[in-house]
Design a protein around this nucleic acid. Sequence first.
DNA 1: AAACTTCTCAACCGCTTGCAT
DNA 2: TATGCAAGCGGTTGAGAAGTT
Length: 370
Amino acid sequence: MGRAPCCEKSGLKKGPWTPEEDEKLIAYIKKHGQGNWRTLPKNAGLARCGKSCRLRWTNYLRPDIKRGRFSFEEEETIIQLHSILGNKWSAIAARLPGRTDNEIKNYWNTHIRKRLLRMGIDPVTHAPRLDVLDLSALLKPAAAYYPTQADLDTLRAFEPLANYPDLLRLAASTLLAGSPAIGDQQQQQQQLLPWLLQAQMAQAAAMVAPPPQQQAEHNQFMQQQQAAVAACQMPDLVHASPTSVAQQLAAAAQQQQHQHQPQDMAAAACHSMQPPTGYVVDSQQLDVPALMQMVQQPDASNLQQWSSTVTSSNNNNVGSGVSTPSSSPVAGLNSTATTTTYGGASASSSDAAALFNLQLSDLLDVSDYM
DNA sequence: AAACTTCTCAACCGCTTGCAT
DNA sequence: TATGCAAGCGGTTGAGAAGTT
C-alpha cells in the first residue's frame, strides 16, 4: 500500500489558513462540490495540498458544523459512546450531529478525560481507579482524621481480602456511590475511611504476593468464565437482580460444592458481573457488611474465583452500567433488546438498563455549564 | 505590567483502509 | 494477486489565548 505523496510536494503552504484561502475553498466547493481533493487545490487556486483542504473543510468550514461549547447531553453521549467504542472518534462524531471527530477528540483530551481522572475513573476502561484515589481530597471537609483503634482493628480483620483486590475495588465503588442509609457526610467519611485504607493496603499487598492458583483449577475457572460470557450475551450485559454480591458468592460456593451444571455456574457468574465498572449505580450495590462477614469466615476459598469473575467483567468492559437515555443520539445503538435466561429467571436488557441508571449528572461538575 | 505557566484547538503527520487497475 | 492512489482516521504538535505569579 503506497502512501499519498501530496504533502511532500514543495511550494505548498502549511499552517493556519487565511480568510482569503477559506473564501476560495468555500466558493469552490459551493460551486463544484467536494469532488477530488487531490485536484481541488489547483482548480480552486490554492497553494495547499488536497489533504489540508479536506481537513479545513471537514473540521472547520463545513456549513453544518455546530460551534460553541458542548452541551451536557453531548458530553454525556460522548462518555457513553466512548465506553462502548473507545477512541473511535469518527464513529462517535457520526452520532453527534454537527460535531467533528477532531473536535470531539480535542474535547475528550482537554476536558472529559481530565474530569474522569479527577473523579477517580480510568478514562480508558471507565473503571474506578483506587490506585490513584486521593483520600485527602475525599476527607477535605473534615478538619482532620486520625484512624481510631477500631479502624485499625477493622483493617487487620480484613487482611484476608488482600488477595481479592477486585472485590475490594467493587466494595469501594459501592461505598463511593454513597449509601442512602448514611446521610451525614462526616459519618459517611468515617465509615468510608477504613474501607478505602483497606482497599489500598490490600491492593499493595496483592501486588507483592498474588494468590497461588493451581493450573487445573484455573483451567476449570476459565471454562466457566467463557460459559458465563456466553450466557450473558455480551455486550448487552445488564440484568435485574436484587440479590447482593455476597449472597451470590454464597450461592456460587454452594453450587460448586454440589457440582451443578456449568450453565448454572455461568448464570451465577453472570449475576456477579453486574456491579459497576465505572459509575455510580443506584439500585444495586455491593452488600459490604455481608461481604465483610464472609471474608472473616475461615474458609473463603471461593472468593478467589468470584474476585476473578469481577476482574474479567471489568477487563472486558461489559455491563459497564452505562445508561442509554432515550433522548440521546446513542439510543438505538443496542436497539435489539436481548433477554437472558438463567436459573429459571429472566430479565431483558432494556428493563434492566433502567436499574443501572447512570448518575452522571451527579458525578460531573455541573457548574461548568452554568 | 511583565514573565511565566497552563490550556485550547486547528492543523499536521503518518498509518490504515478501500478501491481501481 | 500485487500495486498505486485517494480518502479516512487517530495521535501528536505547536501557536496563540488565557490564567497565574
